[in-house]
């Protein structure tokens, strides 16, 4: 499974969310691949799940891919709750 983390510039907040997601995945014993990108690049990439803040993810939600959003990018409880349904 491949998870793509997206933010506006693909520099800061997506990298931070990626680190948090990796911690959560380790906890859940998942071997999913995680990477991060800006919105523009993400549109031309493929992944099993696109994850980011809601107002960013809404731009990707055109029915052609699986998306999910989080509010606090450091809140591992929230991230875990969002990710778990997709990992099964």
């Amino acid at each position: 499974m491949k998870i793509m983390i997206v933010c506006g510039n693909g520099l800061g907040s997506s990298l931070m969310l990626e680190m948090a997601v990796k911690d959560v995945l380790k906890e859940l014993k998942s071997d999913a691949q995680v990477s991060h990108a800006d919105l523009f690049t993400a549109k031309s990439e493929s992944a099993d799940l696109f994850l980011g803040a809601r107002e960013i993810i809404d731009n990707l939600d055109d029915g052609s891919r699986k998306v999910a959003s989080v509010k606090n990018i450091m809140d591992k409880v929230e991230i875990k709750a969002v990710l778990e349904p997709f990992l099964k």
Binding site: C7, G8, L11, G12, S13, M16, A53, R54, E55, I56, S69, V70, K71, N72, I73, M74
Partner: peptide
Amino acid sequence: LDCPAVFP
């Protein structure tokens, strides 16, 4: 964290 962290 980077500023978009507060956007949501």
